[in-house]
Design a protein around this nucleic acid. Structure first.
Lengths: 160, 160
DNA sequence: CTCGGTGCAAAGCTTTTGCATCCGC
DNA sequence: GCGGATGCAAAAGCTTTGCACCGAG
């Protein structure tokens, strides 16, 4: 998805409200990281984001990137995934409809999909267990039935 | 689940068949690790298993534990989970029916549950995407509706 | 002015790797 | 005996922490 000024305005407001609610300071670094994330699309990891910040005018540290990502995850502007590798993957989540992930066991690429049945489970599975489900992670590990999936542009980004 | 000699016999046979099929050597360390895993119940991480081996007569290295766990996961005698922490969690899987996991956001304990709707998704979600689903990971993150879940023995092991 | 946030580097923790030795086949 | 597997320790990779300085409120 391309850069979207209106969208950016909205997420900035949400972040501001969150920082105020939690009595956290509105630092330029926090907004710079939020904007950098919402300027790009797809999944990213800390190192990629840190590199993007460094390659621009920004003077940020990894510690601040980690700290700010935690805040953004907490206020639900970013979601965090552990795709079975050691490096956490993130993606912006505002304005995106809920989706899950399929990982190709042949080429390690990630495909997003949406299955309404998963929402049913999300909404009702907790009752029996006496839990209130806050969020979930569903990952399907699957072999590609198509040929040459590695070079298929319809598939998402490759994870490390 | 308590130690079960018959069960152990079976998994040892399965492991032997796997090692033969893959032309891998039947070392005493590999069988010792398999037995140590099947002698206990619940989830475990590498450090716990390594500690258990060390506290007994065994002379094993972490490297061998990691290597053997990879083999056991590959032949489906053990399953591996990334519960959002950095440390991978494992559990024995032979003779267990398929289940998914709920993690309490209050106390970090893991509860196993089984929802037949998940099997439906597993079996059919791949078709549309032209993938053959091999396995999946579903984790519900949920708040405990009961009081004092931390001390509830009905709930599983706490993860780090 | 205060003290929470930051940059930087060092430390921490989990996992992988290199190498000499060992042992299954 | 050959070559894969192991133990050990060192290295690698991701994340967190300690500390002095900076800047938002």
């Amino acid at each position: 998805m391309a850069f979207n000024a209106g969208n950016l305005e909205e997420v900035r407001k949400i972040f501001s409200a969150y920082l105020e609610r939690k009595n956290l300071r509105k630092t330029s670094e926090r907004y710079a990281i939020l904007e950098e994330i919402y300027r790009h699309s797809g999944h990213f990891d800390v190192e990629l984001l840190y590199g993007q910040m460094k390659s621009k005018k920004y003077r940020v540290s990894r510690a601040t990137v980690y700290n700010t990502l935690d805040l953004l995850v907490d206020c639900e502007l970013v979601s965090k995934h552990q795709f079975g590798r050691n490096q956490a993957q993130y993606e912006k989540s505002y304005g995106y409809k809920q989706h899950d992930h399929l990982i190709c066991t042949d080429c390690n690429k990630v495909v997003e999909f949406c299955d309404p049945r998963m929402q049913n489970i999300h909404n009702t599975a907790g009752e029996l267990l006496q839990f209130r489900v806050l969020h979930h992670s569903l990952i399907l590990y699957a072999a590609c039935a198509r040929k040459n999936c590695e070079n298929n542009p319809a598939m998402g980004t490759k994870i490390k």
